[in-house]
Nucleic acid binder design. Structure first.
Length: 897
RNA sequence: GGGCGCGUAGCUCAGCGGGAGAGCACCUCGCUUACACCGAGGGGGUCCCAGGUUCGAAUCCUGGCGCGCCCACCA
C-alpha cells in the first residue's frame, strides 16, 4: 500500500462535511495539483494483489525516456486513464502499469548531440563512460515524460513503475534471448541489412521509411566481351556498378535470350561478369536488362543467392567506398556517384540520363539515406512464432478494435520476415553472447560465463552489439509483472485486459508482444487491442516535431485546463477516423467544464439549509424524471465504453448534463428551491445534490479534476474522495403516463418559446396562454413551471373551441393558444403554418405512395407496414388540423385588412 | 503493382436498409440573482457521380471521380 502520510487535504477539506460555496471561476491548475496529490497519498492508484475484487489490467505503451508528451500520447493516455477510472468506479481492482522505454537509437543520439556540443564523440569517452553518461542523462531528464503523464492525470500505479533497462527487465531480456537461442530461434547470419552510415547501425525495415527523392535514372552500356555491342542497363545508383557481379535478363525475353551465359565487361573497372537469367527481371522496365549488385541491393541479394553469384562489398560502415571500388575507394556514396557518372560519360558508356523521382529508405531517426550493406547480424526466426500469434487473433483470443486492423495484422504476419535484432549501439541490452577466441564458437548464457562452453577456453569476448529496442518492449506485458519469476502479480494481472495504442506500432510492438506472450507465458498478453486514431493538425497533416508542426499538450493544458483537453480529445476519439485537431476545438471542452462548474455553483447556492441526514420522499415528477435521465445517460455511456466508442460515451454525458440537467431540470427546479414549501424544497435539494453527484461520478473518468474539486464542496461526502466512489444505482423507471406528462410539458414550453423566438419577443413582454379544458389538469399541475420557462403571464382554460386567433397544435396532442396583441403574430404564424403544411403534404405524399404500393404491402415486414399506416393517420390528422387553422387565420387576416 | 479507408449543413464529424443529425460557425432576440466560456429561437444539405439490388438506398453491390494511408525487389 501507499505510505499514508496525513496530508493538508485530509485535515482541511476532506473532513469538512459541510457545504461550501464555489468561487465564480474554476481555477484548474491548483485543483489539478491538489487532487492528484490527494489521490496519490490515499494510494488510490495502487493495485494490490490481495484485493479480492475482479481485476482489470493494462500496461502503458512505454514512452521514450527522451520523449516529451505529444498529442498522440495525450489522447492515448487520456483514453487509458478513462478506462482505468471507469473500471475502478465499477468496483474493479485496476492495475495500470506504467513505465518508460530506453529507446536505443533516440536516446543515444540525444546524448551524442550533447557531446558534440563539447566537440566530442562517444568514441572519445569509450563505451563504459558513454553508457554511464546516458544513465546520468536519464536520471536528470528521464522523469519529464512521467511528470507530464501525471499532469495529464494518469492514474498509473507509480509504485510499480518500470524502465526497460531495470535489472529485472534486463534479466527477462537475457532469459528470452538465451532460451530462443537454444531453441534455434535466434541465429547469426550474413545478410543485407539497411545501414545508417550516420548512426553506424543496422535498421529494421520498420525503422527505415521510404521518402521521396528527385533521383535520376542512368542508362549505362556494358560492352560484350566476345563481340560487338553492349547491354544497356538502367540504375538510379550508378556507383553500385562497382560492386556488380552480373547482369540479369528475363529468361523468356526474346530480345536478350542469346546473351544469357555470355560475359560483359564491367565499365570503369573492367571486370568480366556473366549475363544471367532470372524471372525477377521486369521486362517492361527500361531495356529489360538489369545490373546485379548482391552486396548492395535487397533484390539483387536474393537473386545472387539463388544463382550463386558472389556478393562484392564496396562499402565501409561509415558510408565510404572500400578497396573493392578501386580508384573510387575512400569517396562517400554521393561523391562516388558524381565521379562514376563523369567517367562513364568520358568513356562514352553513358547511354542516357533522365529524371526519376522515386522513394528510397531513410533513417527514421536522423533522416540519412540508408545504404544496403552486407554484414553479420543476429536474427530472430519469426515464422514459427507468428503462426500461433495469427491463430490467436483468428480465433478471437485477441480482438482488435476497430476490427479492421486485424487485416493489417494478418497481412504482415503472414508475410513475416526474420527480424534483425542486433544494433551497433552502446545504449541498450548488450547481447548475452560471448565468442571464443580459440574455437570461434558462441557461448550464450544468462549469467556472464567465465569460459567457452565448447572448448573451456577463458579467452571469450562478449558481442558488442545491443538488442533492438523493440526486443525488450515485446516482453513488456510480462517482464513488468516480474517474469521470469512466478510472481503473484503475474498470476493475477496476466493476461492484461486491454492494450491501447496507435496503429503505426502494430508491427513494431503489438504483434511482437503477442508472439512473445504466447511463447513464454503460454497465453496472449491482452484480450483486446484498442487502436486509437491518429491526431493530425487542422489541415490533416501528421503532427511532427521535426517539421515544427504541432501543439504541445502541456501548453494547452495550462491555458484551457487539463480536464478540457482530456474532454476534447475524448469527444473527438471516434472510431476509424483520424482526429483533426486545431486549438480552437478546445474552447468547447473548456465551455463544458465551465458549464458543469456553474451548475454546481447553482446547486451549492441553493443547498444552504439542506440537511443530508433528513429523511426525504421520492420527490416530485421532475425529480424522478431527471434521475431516470441520469440512468439512461450512464447506461449509454457505459455501453459505448464497452465498445470503445469513446466519443459516443462523451456525447451521452454531455447531452445529459447540458441538455437535460442544466437546460430543463435546473430551470424546473428553481421555483421549488426558492419557494416556501419546505418539503418540496428539501426533496428538490436532495435530487439536485444526488443528480449532480451522479453527474460528477459519470464525468470523473473523463474530467477527474474539476469533478473532484466540485465533489469536495458537496455536503454529506463523509471525507471521501470522488475517485474512490462508485456509479449510482439506477432509480425506478417512470410510469408510462408520467413519462408522457413530462413529454407534454417539454413540448408546451418548447412550442411557446418557438413562437416567442420567431416573433422576437423580449422576456419583458408577457404572453397569455390558453388551453382547452381537457388539458386543464395537466397544465395546472405544471403552471409554475410553464410560466417560469416561457415567460407567460397568465394561463387560462376554456372548454370547447378556442378562439381562432392564435391556437397552435402541440405534439402533446392538444392546442395551446398564445394570445398576443402583436400584429406581426398573424403573418408570422401564417408563414410558419404554410411551411408546416407544405412539409406535412410532402411527408404524407411519401407515406401515401408507399401504402398504395401493393408490392410494399406484400413484401415489407408487417410491423413496418403497421407503423407506416399509423404514421399516415397521424400525418393526415395533423394536416387537417393545420389546414383548418390556416384557413381561419387567413380569414382573420382578410378581416383585418 | 496490390490492399485498406474516407467523400453527409460553411467547418469537424455521427448515422450505415424504413420520415436527413450533433458540435462549432452564421442570423434574430435577450446582461431573467448558476453560467455571455451563457440563455431562447432560427436559417442552412441533388447525403461525390453513374448504374444496379430492393416494396423502399445516405445506408447494400458494381463502376467512375477525388482525397488519405499501409504494404511491395520496377532497378
Amino acid at each position: 500500500m501507499a505510505p499514508r502520510r496525513p496530508s493538508p487535504i485530509d485535515s482541511a477539506s476532506l473532513s469538512d462535511a459541510g457545504t461550501r460555496t464555489l468561487p465564480t471561476r474554476f481555477e484548474a491548475a491548483p485543483a489539478e495539483a491538489r487532487w492528484y496529490r490527494a489521490w496519490l497519498e490515499r494510494g488510490l492508484f495502487h493495485a494490490s494483489v490481495d484485493d479480492p475484487r475482479p481485476r482489470f489490467s493494462m500496461v502503458i505503451p512505454p514512452p521514450n525516456v527522451t520523449g516529451s508528451l505529444h498529442l498522440g500520447h495525450a489522447l492515448n493516455n487520456t483514453l487509458q486513464d478513462l478506462l482505468a477510472r471507469h473500471k475502478r468506479l465499477q468496483g474493479m481492482n485496476v492495475l495500470w502499469m506504467p513505465g518508460t522505454d530506453h529507446a536505443g537509437i533516440s536516446t543515444q543520439v540525444v546524448v551524442e548531440r550533447e557531446l558534440a556540443k563539447q566537440g566530442k564523440t562517444r568514441h572519445d569517452l569509450g563505451r563504459e563512460a558513454f553508457v554511464d553518461q546516458v544513465w546520468e542523462w536519464k536520471a536528470r531528464y528521464g522523469a519529464r515524460i512521467v511528470q507530464q503523464l501525471q499532469a495529464l492525470g494518469c492514474s498509473c500505479d507509480w509504485q510499480r513503475e518500470r524502465f526497460t533497462m531495470d535489472p529485472g527487465l534486463s534479466r527477462a531480456v537475457r532469459e528470452v534471448f538465451v532460451r530462443l537461442y537454444h531453441e534455434g530461434l535466434i541465429y547469426r547470419a550474413e545478410y543485407l541489412v539497411s545501414w545508417c552510415p550516420r548512426c553506424s547501425t543496422v535498421l529494421s525495415d520498420l525503422e527505415s521509411p521510404f521518402r521521396p527523392v528527385a533521383g535520376k535514372l542512368y542508362a549505362i552500356r556494358y560492352p560484350l566481351v566476345d563481340g560487338e555491342g553492349a547491354l544497356v542497363v538502367e540504375t538510379t545508383r550508378p556507383e553500385t556498378l562497382l560492386g556488380d557481379t552480373a547482369v540479369a535478363v528475363h529468361p523468356e525475353d526474346p530480345r536478350w535470350s542469346r546473351f544469357v551465359g555470355r560475359r560483359v565487361r564491367l565499365p570503369l573497372l573492367g571486370r568480366e561478369i556473366p549475363v544471367v537469367a532470372d524471372p525477377f527481371v521486369d521486362r517492361e522496365f527500361g531495356s529489360g536488362a538489369v545490373k546485379v549488385t548482391p552486396a548492395h541491393d535487397p533484390a539483387d541479394f536474393e537473386v545472387g543467392r539463388r544463382l550463386g553469384l558472389p556478393a562484392l562489398n564496396i562499402l565501409e560502415p561509415d558510408g565510404r567506398l572500400n578497396a573493392n571500388a578501386g580508384p573510387y575507394a575512400g569517396l562517400d556514396v554521393m561523391e562516388a556517384r558524381r565521379r562514376v557518372v563523369a567517367d562513364l560519360e568520358a568513356e562514352g558508356l553513358l547511354a542516357g540520363v533522365k529524371d526519376h523521382p522515386h522513394e528510397v529508405p531513410h533513417c527514421d531517426r536522423c533522416d540519412t539515406l540508408v545504404q544496403p550493406l552486407l554484414s553479420e547480424q543476429w536474427f530472430m526466426r519469426m515464422e514459427p512464432l507468428a503462426r500461433p500469434a495469427i491463430e490467436a487473433v483468428r480465433s478471437g483470443r485477441v480482438v482488435f478494435h476497430p476490427k479492421s486492423w486485424e487485416n493489417t495484422y494478418f497481412h504482415w504476419m503472414e508475410n513475416i520476415r526474420d527480424w534483425a535484432i542486433s544494433r551497433q549501439l552502446w545504449w541498450g541490452h548488450r547481447i548475452p553472447a560471448w565468442r571464443c577466441a580459440s574455437c570461434g564458437e558462441w557461448t550464450v548464457t544468462v549469467e556472464d560465463p567465465e569460459r567457452c562452453a565448447h572448448c573451456a577456453s577463458g579467452a571469450i569476448v562478449q558481442e558488442s552489439d545491443v538488442l533492438d529496442t523493440w526486443f525488450s518492449s515485446a516482453l513488456w506485458p510480462f517482464s513488468t509483472l516480474g517474469w521470469p519469476d512466478d510472481t503473484p502479480e503475474l498470476r493475477l494481472f496476466y493476461p492484461t485486459s486491454v492494450l491501447s495504442t496507435a496503429f503505426d506500432i502494430i508491427f513494431f510492438w503489438v504483434a511482437r508482444m503477442i508472439m512473445m506472450g504466447l511463447h513464454f507465458m503460454g497465453d496472449v498478453p491482452f484480450r483486446e487491442v484498442y487502436i486509437h486514431a491518429l491526431v493530425r493538425d487542422e489541415k490533416g497533416r501528421k503532427f511532427s516535431k521535426s517539421k515544427g508542426i504541432g501543439i504541445d499538450p502541456m501548453d494547452v493544458m495550462a491555458v484551457y485546463g487539463t480536464d478540457a483537453v482530456r474532454w476534447t480529445l475524448t469527444s473527438l476519439a471516434a472510431q476509424g477516423r483520424d482526429i483533426r485537431f486545431g486549438e480552437h476545438v478546445l474552447e468547447g471542452g473548456r465551455a463544458f467544464v465551465t458549464k458543469l462548474w456553474n451548475a454546481a455553483r447553482f446547486a451549492l447556492l441553493n443547498l444552504g439549509d439542506f440537511d443530508p441526514q433528513a429523511p426525504a420522499g421520492s420527490g416530485g415528477l421532475y425529480d424522478r424524471w431527471i434521475r431516470t435521465r441520469l440512468d439512461v445517460a450512464l447506461a449509454e455511456a457505459h455501453a459505448a465504453l464497452d465498445a470503445y466508442r469513446f466519443s459516443d460515451a462523451a456525447g451521452a454525458l454531455y447531452a445529459f448534463v447540458w441538455g437535460e440537467l442544466c437546460d430543463w431540470y435546473i430551470e424546473l427546479a428553481k421555483p421549488a428551491l426558492q419557494g416556501s414549501d419546505n418539503a418540496a424544497r428539501r426533496a428538490t435539494q436532495r435530487t439536485l445534490l444526488e443528480v449532480l453527484a451522479g453527474a460528477l461520478v459519470a464525468l470523473h473518468p473523463v474530467m477527474p479534476f474539476v469533478t473532484e474539486e466540485i465533489f469536495q464542496a458537496l455536503p454529506g461526502r463523509d471525507g471521501r474522495l470522488l475517485m474512490e466512489g462508485h456509479y449510482p444505482a439506477a432509480a425506478p423507471a417512470l410510469a408510462a403516463e408520467e413519462a408522457a406528462e413530462m413529454e407534454a410539458l417539454l413540448a408546451i414550453v418548447s412550442r411557446v418559446r418557438q413562437v416567442r423566438g420567431e416573433l422576437g419577443l423580449p422576456p419583458s413582454q408577457r404572453v397569455r396562454l390558453g388551453f382547452p379544458a381537457a388539458a386543464a389538469e395537466l397544465v395546472r399541475r405544471h403552471e409554475v413551471g410553464i410560466r417560469t420557462l416561457t415567460g407567460a403571464g397568465e394561463l387560462h382554460f376554456e372548454a370547447g373551441e378556442a378562439p381562432a386567433t392564435a391556437a397552435v397544435t402541440l405534439a402533446a396532442g392538444f392546442a395551446v393558444r398564445i394570445e398576443l396583441d402583436d400584429p406581426r403574430f398573424l403573418s408570422e404564424e401564417l408563414r410558419r403554418l404554410e411551411k408546416v403544411l407544405q412539409n406535412l403534404e410532402k411527408d404524407l405524399e411519401g407515406v401515401g405512395k408507399k401504402l398504395e404500393n401493393p408490392k410494399f404491402l406484400e413484401r415489407a415486414r408487417e410491423d413496418v407496414v403497421a407503423a407506416e399506416r399509423e404514421k399516415h393517420a397521424r400525418l393526415a390528422a395533423e394536416r387537417a388540423a393545420t389546414a383548418e387553422r390556416l384557413a381561419r387565420l387567413r380569414g382573420l387576416e382578410g378581416a383585418a385588412r
